[in-house]
Nucleic acid binder design. Structure first.
Lengths: 341, 341
DNA sequence: GCTCCCCATGTAAACGTTTTCATGAATGCC
DNA sequence: GGCATTCATGAAAACGTTTACATGGGGAGC
């Protein structure tokens, strides 16, 4: 490397200890030596070596973020929320994505060992047990969108149940009886919770869910498009409303219906989930469930900082639920009555 | 921290050097001791401390990424491309965003000192000179979407000129004479290049640009929406086509016209720039300029790795241009003729 | 059977900080 | 004016690795 604290010390005629004290304000230093050291440091464009500092002080000033993917607005919003909170605390972000299986997560976690103070892990496709084996001891961890895992300091989850209930309620109030659902990836925790919520809400509304109205999906636009096509190709009765487990799929479905000249919301009502930024800009603007994704990320980071600040008490795992609120826009309406059709 | 290489060495009855050799395969080790060490390491769930390793080997196995922001699909795509390439090389990513001014970039760069092997910097609002003062010596740097900066190993830019030329050409061929333009942030390099490209292409098509048809914008959906509103509120003649400097603004404009019952592409043609994933899913699907944003990121990372592998030759700054290709979808058509109107 | 060499391993010195402990000077107290 | 106390500073030991160098043993070549 380049210029070290030794160089600064030598040129300022002090010991390295004093330089360190000046730079970190960790102990009182006489004013004149302070300015002298500062001047030399600036002249030399000295920047402390973070690796050495981390090693010595056992403080990395960095958070690790492990994500399953980076595709789409959901993750950029999440990351944005985390970054904002981390930056406020003067921490950097170590990001690692594309980890779908236990092995991938394990490797990513290992790579972060020693360079982060804590971990934010989102691994919606891993079972809590699998996740538990992947995470190291001795490092505070906050789990995103998954139930509290043994060994984790905290977890923050979205109120999928509340959100789905609100959606189904809204559709039923509009008069819909036949509501189809596009699932997310089969092993994704959020996706499963939303499917469960949909089923439960339908049941409690006294409606039955036709098996052919539950369509497979994968959280991508293309997946939503395909599901909508499958729905249209279906032989039986067509539903009057379609509930997609996330916004990306809802947007894809919107396109499929548009291509098929099926009017939304006239002939088909569509609802999404997440309220990604683009949701209000598609036509018709998407009725969806608002999850403040950036807030979700920020909350998680804040929880992690709390665990960091007070290392004693994170044996009691705490769980936070981020609210999910129905946002009514223009992609839903009453079902067209049969007489008109 | 927890278990160190010393613990492994002691339990395996070898020296720490041997453990290191086994774990890194950096020198031949007898097979039986190798498996013994490996077994102990696994039993102890040993994970080497990255900070120590970095300090000692002067190899961080990490790349720093400095971004102006994280909002929207552009950045998540960029990050995705970078992450993919970095992961292939076994490197982690240190991400820092929200740096709009020289000071912010300087701070971010300092925080990365010693924990990364190289830097990927996107600071489109900084002048090359300002950028030059912010970047440290001795660290390979690749600049994204900005001209080569003194001190940088390489830069990769988008072919803004080619892209804008193709757009204007396409519109002119359709018969448009009055093409408005929504600018990006005034100090953003890409935004400026696109504005320049638009003006140049209009001129070479023999068309004049009316001053009131050049609208301020900020690269956000809301900015595009506002610009479109301003256009509609304008007293004079209305253009027949609108070219937005990025997709997000085009999407916002689309909404504004939809709200005002102005048919796109019937009454107004719209073009964007970037081809973010959502572009094909809005209605009408957006004609735009495809910039493979993930490829852009991947390319930049690859360039950085090249500079890393061969530290001798990056005094000759190299520049790479990512092509920009017109993608015709459904948001453009011929202008409605006056007689019909 | 002697020498040479190679191979596996150990020893110890980096790497660049922070931090504990020691030291000496200056100050305050009686 | 001597003694306790505070205060600024320096010396040196961590922190957990990697790696240059040293060392010993065993096999090959004659």
């Amino acid at each position: 490397m380049n210029v070290t604290i030794r160089d600064v010390a030598r040129l300022a005629n002090v010991s390295v200890a004093t330089v360190s004290r000046v730079l970190n304000a960790s102990a009182p230093v006489r004013e004149d030596t302070r300015v002298r050291v500062l001047k030399v440091a600036r002249d030399l464009r000295f920047a402390p070596n973070s690796a050495a500092r981390t090693l010595s002080s056992r403080q990395a000033s960095a958070l690790g973020v492990i994500l399953p993917d980076l595709y789409g607005e959901f993750f950029s919003e999440l990351l944005r929320g985390i970054d904002l909170e981390a930056q406020r605390a003067g921490h950097s972000l170590l990001v690692s994505s594309s980890h779908h299986d236990t092995h991938g997560v394990t490797v990513a976690v290992r790579a972060m060992r020693g360079r982060v103070d804590g971990l934010l892990v989102m691994a919606p496709e891993l079972s809590p047990a699998a996740l538990a084996t992947a995470i190291p001891e001795g490092l505070p961890i906050v789990i995103l969108n998954a139930p509290p895992t043994p060994g984790a300091a905290a977890s923050v989850v979205v109120d999928n149940m509340g959100g789905t209930r609100a959606v189904v309620h809204h559709l039923v109030e509009l008069g819909h009886r036949e509501v189809a659902f596009i699932c997310g990836p089969p092993r994704n925790t959020d996706a499963r919770a939303r499917l469960r919520g949909y089923r439960a809400a339908m049941r409690s509304a006294g409606l039955t869910v036709q098996p052919e109205f539950v369509l497979p999906g994968d959280f991508t636009e293309d997946g939503g498009w395909k599901a909508a096509r499958a729905l249209m190709a279906g032989a039986g009765k067509r539903p009057t409303a379609l509930f997609a487990a996330n916004d990306a799929m809802a947007v894809g479905a919107l396109l499929a219906f548009h291509e098929a000249n099926i009017d939304v919301p006239g002939d088909m009502s569509i609802v999404g989930f997440d309220d990604i930024p683009i949701a209000r800009y598609v036509t018709p603007s998407l009725t969806t469930v608002r999850v403040a994704i950036d807030v979700l990320g920020g909350r998680a980071a804040a929880l992690l900082f709390r665990a960091l600040a007070d290392p004693v008490n994170w044996n009691e795992t705490l769980k936070e639920v981020v609210p999910a609120e129905l946002i009514v826009r223009h992609s839903c309406g009453p079902p067209r009555t049969d007489t008109i059709r």
